[in-house]
Structure formats: structure tokens, C-alpha cells
Deep mutational scan, measured.
Amino acid sequence: ETFPLDVLVNTAAEDLPRGVDPSRKENFLSDEDFKAVFGMTRSAFANLPLWKQQNLKKEKGLF
């Protein structure tokens, strides 16, 4: 299941849709939104070091 970017960005855990893991908001973006937000594919993002993934998520309001 995916959700629009505005539902996930800068949203407190208690305000997220049911079933969304607040530590993994990026997994609930569509592939198109994911690429638009991070400028890379999911596989490229997954290959980044964890610290870099976290920094990007913070920068984009998805942490």
C-alpha cells in the first residue's frame, strides 16, 4: 500500500495512516514519488550506508 507524499512528510507517528511504520515511511511512497523525493531508485537508496539513508530521510521530512 502506498500513500501520497503529503500524508507522510513531517507527520508524527500517531497521525500516520494505520499500518505505516514511522521508521520506514519511505517504503510507503509510490515508486514515482520515491524517485522524485530522493532522486534515485529504491535499490540505489538501499545500497547507501545507513547513516546516509537516515540523513536523506531527515532532509526530506521522512524521518
Rank of each mutant, 00 (worst) to 15 (best):
K60T: 08
K52A: 11
G19F: 09
F38H: 00
L56R: 01
P49D: 08
G61H: 05
K25G: 04
F28M: 06
K58I: 14
Q54C: 14
D6M: 09
A36F: 13
F34G: 00
E59K: 09
V37Q: 02
G39S: 08
K58Q: 11
F34R: 00
L62Y: 09
L16W: 06
A12W: 06
L50C: 14
D6T: 09
K58N: 07
F45A: 00
A46D: 09
F28R: 05
E32I: 11
K35N: 15
F34S: 00
Q54G: 07
F34W: 02
E59A: 12
T11E: 06
K57I: 08
F3Y: 15
R42Q: 05
L29Y: 02
K57Q: 03
W51I: 10
T2K: 11
L62S: 02
V20S: 05
L56H: 02
V37C: 12
L5I: 12
E1N: 12
V37F: 06
F3R: 04
N47M: 14
Q53T: 01
M40A: 00
L56Q: 01
L62Q: 04
D33Y: 03
A44F: 09
T2L: 08
S23K: 13
V9N: 07
N27R: 11
N27Y: 11
S30W: 01
R42N: 01
A13T: 14
A44S: 10
G19C: 11
P17K: 04
S43L: 14
M40K: 01
L48R: 00
N55T: 13
A44G: 07
Q54H: 11
K57D: 01
D15S: 10
N55V: 13
A46T: 10
G19V: 12
E59C: 11
E32A: 12
K35F: 15
F38R: 00
D15G: 10
V20H: 05
W51C: 13
L29E: 02
E1C: 15
S43D: 13
K57L: 11
Q54E: 13
L56F: 05
G39K: 09
L62A: 03
K52V: 14
S23V: 09
L5C: 09
N55I: 12
F3E: 03
A12Y: 06
P4Y: 04
D21P: 03
A44T: 10
D33Q: 06
V7W: 13
E59H: 07
D15F: 09
D31L: 06
A13P: 15
P49N: 02
F28Q: 04
F3P: 03
L50S: 10
K52F: 13
W51S: 09
D31T: 06
K60V: 13
D33H: 04
R18T: 13
K60L: 10
D33E: 09
S43V: 13
Q54N: 14
T41P: 08
E32V: 10
R24F: 14
F45R: 00
L50T: 11
E1G: 11
L56E: 02
N55S: 14
G39T: 03
R24I: 07
D31C: 06
N10A: 08
D31G: 04
V7F: 15
N27D: 15
L8Y: 02
K25S: 05
W51Y: 10
F63H: 15
P22C: 08
V20W: 04
P22K: 06
V20T: 04
V20D: 05
P22N: 05
L8S: 03
E14M: 06
L56C: 04
K58R: 13
E1W: 09
N55H: 13
E26S: 02
D21W: 04
F38T: 01
L5T: 04
K60G: 03
F63E: 14
L8W: 02
T11L: 10
R18A: 15
T41K: 06
P4R: 02
F38L: 07
P17C: 08
P17A: 03
S30D: 07
D15T: 07
A36I: 12
F34L: 01
L16S: 05
W51N: 08
M40W: 01
E26K: 02
L56W: 02
F63V: 12
Q54D: 14
K57H: 01
V7Y: 15
F28H: 14
L50Y: 13
F28A: 09
A44V: 11
A12Q: 10
E26A: 02
V37L: 13
T11C: 12
F63G: 15
V7N: 06
P4W: 04
Q54W: 12
A13F: 11
G61E: 03
E1H: 13
E14A: 11
D21T: 05
E59M: 11
